[in-house]
């Protein structure tokens, strides 16, 4: 069983949203509401409890050199977003019920029968991915198509993608592929092509990696996401100090003057 990953290459994405719809179809997820956002052609906004794949439409004042293919074409870029399946996953670390597990494929999976809807994972995800379902309160996000992978199928979104913008495969191979692709893009004059896989932060890399154009922030990708467990040490130290002070203070107060109130 190999450790798998996604490499979503936005330079190949045509914004057809087939991935978004395929995911909903396969997983039987509800629609997300029928509001017009006005944000380019993106009316679903972000990944969430009822959208596990989400295609972003990066519309900007045309920037020469940011076009789909050529060094001189104005840009409108698309990128399909998904749970990052972090190497060090905030949601998984935080989950108090053990509902969130790492699968044999390296993905981060919420067991829907275990999740109790505490919502803690929601606050623990540095990518704003997982969310609680309005109806029953449980948390949902991309399953990495665990059910499909189990039986040797590609995730539905990757399968639906017509242009292989979503590539699925063995993680190390994909990282190597990404490296070569980046070299190629740079050679073609797309100097701003970049690889997004935050290995340098406490997240320690993801199983959903991206090739993007320009600044990751344009795609709502945080430059340096951190897994919240890094705050634990400081927090518990402060908690211990607080306990100590509470204990000491109370002792002191009551020892010196316990009876005065009588």
């Amino acid at each position: 069983m190999s450790v798998t990953a996604f490499l979503t290459d936005s330079t190949l994405c045509i914004g057809c949203k087939a991935c978004e719809v395929a995911c909903k179809e396969w997983n039987g997820i509800e629609g997300d509401g029928l509001d017009w956002s006005g944000f380019s052609y993106d009316n679903t906004g972000a990944v969430g409890a009822s959208t596990w794949r989400h295609v972003k439409f990066v519309e900007r004042a045309p920037v020469p050199g940011l076009g789909g293919n050529a060094g001189e074409q104005a840009s409108w870029t698309f990128s399909s977003d998904v749970c990052k399946h972090c190497e060090q996953a905030g949601c998984l670390e935080a989950c108090p019920t053990g509902s969130i597990v790492r699968t044999e494929f390296g993905g981060v999976f919420i067991q829907p029968d275990v999740c109790n809807g505490c919502g803690y994972c929601v606050t623990a995800c540095p990518f704003g991915v997982v969310a609680r379902n309005e109806q029953d309160g449980r948390a949902f996000k991309c399953t990495f198509c665990y059910d499909r992978q189990k039986v040797g199928l590609r995730p539905a979104c990757a399968k639906a993608c017509p242009t292989e913008s979503i590539q699925f495969g063995e993680i190390d191979e994909l990282r190597e592929k990404a490296r070569l692709r980046l070299e190629e893009l740079h050679r073609r004059g797309m100097d701003d092509a970049a690889f997004y896989d935050p290995t340098h932060t406490s997240v320690r890399g993801t199983h959903a990696m991206f090739i993007i154009r320009g600044d990751p922030r344009t795609y709502n990708l945080p430059p340096s996401p951190q897994v919240p467990t890094i705050y634990l040490k400081k927090g518990w130290r402060s908690s211990a100090l607080a306990a100590g002070l509470l204990l000491g203070g109370t002792l002191l107060a009551l020892l010196t003057d316990g009876r005065s109130g009588r």
């Binding site: 606050t123 467990t229 705050y231 400081k234 927090g235 402060s238 100090l241 607080a242 002070l245």
Partner: peptide, 24 residues
């Protein structure tokens, strides 16, 4: 205090060192 401090929410995790004392 640790509970909310050790999250991705900036205002919370920025104060993780103070929150437990504060809440105590």
């Amino acid at each position: 205090g640790v509970l909310i401090g050790a999250t991705a929410i900036p205002v919370w995790n920025r104060n993780v060192g103070d929150l437990p004392l504060h809440f105590a």
